[in-house]
Each structure stands twice: as structure tokens, then as C-alpha cells.
Amino acid sequence: MTESPQTISFRDVRVLAAGRLLLEVPQLDLSEQRISVIGPNGGGKSTLLQLVNGLVEPTEGYVTTDGLDTVEHGRQVRQRAGFVFSNPAAQLVMPTPLEDVELSLRRSIGHADQRRRIAQDCLVGLGIADLAARSSQELSSGQQQLVALATVLVFKPQILLLDEPTTLLDLANAARFTSMVSRLEDAHGICTITATHDLELAAGAERTLLVEDGRIAADGEPEQIITAYRSRSTA
């Protein structure tokens, strides 16, 4: 894919909370299909991701996703850019996975039967149809995270924002989650922006951003950025 229609633009963005500068991005345009964001905790990775779908609003400046301002058109932007967080348990609220996926559709689809069908298809597509009627509470973190992915994919987003999606998973479940995501990238052309501490995962992207101390400290080829980050962190 050479020219992706999904473009995310940051212009003169500053995010302040209680007088403290969380993130400053003077100019940034993202159009690659796979982008990874690395950097220390509290550096602003999460804020950067949340700006893209309007969960965090810029105190100054603006962010557009697909040409839509994330503040003015928050709802539409969030339909296009799905978000998966690191804590799997906190993302699910209903007793069973199927009901949780249906809940995502409540606003967009009026018919309960149709909601159920689409939700079921979505779980089948992710290979977790067997979990549909289980108690969400009793699922493993890995299973919960796949369900969380389903609750977001059911909107058919073009962009997936993944905020340390595998940090709380064990090795096998993390691998299952990442392979599922790369299948979505290949099969449906979904663009992903992944914030992660897993540098191997970060290296699989086309472009890597290093976010540190509330600014983008480096931006470019994954290999180059990761090497620079590694040497700086261990120095």
C-alpha cells in the first residue's frame, strides 16, 4: 500500500493537565499502515494515541483523523479509529462476550436480532466463537483481550489504536493477539498504531515514533529509532 487514505494530522498540539504539559506535537502526519510508538512510561505515548480518536482533547491546536476534527466530530472519529487498552478486564462490562460485542452496536443498529448476528459473526471472525456465552469474568486475560478487540472491530474501523495491548498478557496470549492483529492488517487493510514496550513488536512497523518527556524525540525507520532508544536507555 503506497498511498493510504487514512491520514492523521497533528497541528500545533499541546496537551496540558492541571498546568502540566503532557505532550507537545507541533506537526505530525501519519499515513503508514503500521506505526509503532515507543518510549518510557509517562512520556506521553498513551496521550498521543488518545489524541487520535479524541479521548484526549488538545488544549491547544487540533488533530484531524481522516480529515475529521477529533473534537468536533468525536463520534465519527471513534467509529473509524478503534481503541484497545492494556487492561483487558476493565474494557468489558457485560456478563458475556456476546452481549458485550452487541453493546457496541446498540447505537448504530436498532434490531436486536441483527445486532446478535453481527456480533456472532465478529466473534467467529476472530476465532473465539466458543467464548460467546461464557462468563466474561472467568475468561483468561488473553481471552478477555481478544473479546475487547472484538468489541472494537465490530464497528469496522479503518484504524486500530493499540495501547500496550500485550503488556498484561502471558507470552502465548501475547503472540496470539499480535498474530490476530497482523492478520487484520493484511486481510482488511486496517491501519494500526501500537504503543508498546515490546521492541520486537515495535520493529515490525513501517515507522516508529519515540515519545519521551512529552514530545516526539525521534521519528523514522523502526530499526534506527529502536537502536537509538536502546542505547540511550541502557547508557
Partner: peptide
């Protein structure tokens, strides 16, 4: 004071 006006939040 800054390049852009403070934005009104929702």
C-alpha cells in the same frame, strides 16, 4: 500567548 487559542472542551 500561544500560537493557537485554548480550545473549549466538551
Amino acid at each position: 500567548e500561544s500560537k493557537h487559542p485554548q480550545r473549549r472542551t466538551r
